[in-house]
Design a protein around this nucleic acid. Structure first.
Lengths: 145, 145
DNA sequence: ACAATAAAAGACATTTTTATCTTTTATTGT
DNA sequence: ACAATAAAAGATAAAAATGTCTTTTATTGT
């Protein structure tokens, strides 16, 4: 198990891919996305349906339809995707699973974890969905393998 | 889902509890541990059996038996527990699930994740299993709720 | 030796996550 | 209107994680 669920990994990769391929206003289909990010097509479909419902990505049915991102979506922080898919638990929950862990009632790792989680969160909040488009085009960063 | 699996959360809480209660050389039974850290008894039993096999904790059967930690175990880094239970993936694997993600072939988040993972790892490597015994005795930190 | 104790081990059940396949609905171009 | 397209939705399945219960083995004190 990684930091995120499989679902979330697919979601982030797909969102980056959609961003890269629809910055010009076009759409991209589920089949192509699934192949290009190496994910199970129908499973990814569910994930994108959910993101679409939540307004994090956009979609249109029918010929020339597909998924895309409007200007607002391209500017969203990546943390929105993680929150939508995995929930915000990773940013907030106790590392040892205590429900009432807090600075008043801390687990042994509370303070150290607070630091790590805050870093993770501020990192994901400062990254936007669209910011890797150029690097992806140049092949400096990749979304599969 | 937290950063660690439930299994790993129980493992860490149990190990801290055993450390606190056996620093004097005595043993503590699975029943008491399970109650005091609020975990399913038989599930925790499996976890501790595994940690015992791996030499991370010690155990003896029979009357006055139970789990305990020798001096060496008390000085182990907490990262050993995480590695034993969840594997080292959390310290090494790509945040987006790419098998071949590296500085040569990075995912978009590679560099940022490297930083977060390294911090998490060095934090867990610098914490020892026995270091919270006093704070636990004083009630400054807790292992349940 | 024997009974009591407590971990080890085995078998099984439940829940959650991940994955696959089929049918329906909306949209487009002809 | 109609056929083609592509996402949405529904149903089902497989795998993994989590949880429960029972039996076995090792150890201790009498």
């Amino acid at each position: 198990m990684g930091i995120f669920s499989k679902t979330c990994e697919y979601a982030v990769r797909a969102v980056f891919f959609i961003a890269q391929h629809t910055a010009d206003g076009s759409r991209v289909g589920i089949k192509e996305i699934a192949v290009k990010i190496d994910s199970p097509e129908h499973f990814l479909a569910k994930i994108l349906q959910d993101l679409s419902k939540r307004g994090i990505i956009q979609s249109v049915k029918g010929p020339n339809g597909g998924f895309y991102l409007d200007a607002q979506s391209l500017g969203r922080p990546l943390s929105d995707v993680i929150e939508a898919v995995d929930g915000g638990g990773i940013f907030r929950d106790c590392g040892l699973g205590l429900k009432e862990c807090s600075s008043k009632n801390p687990c042994p790792l509370h303070h150290d974890f607070l630091d790590v989680r805050n870093r993770l969160q501020s990192m994901l909040e400062s990254i936007t969905i669209g910011q890797f488009n150029e690097d992806l085009n140049l092949g400096i960063v990749v979304l599969k393998k």
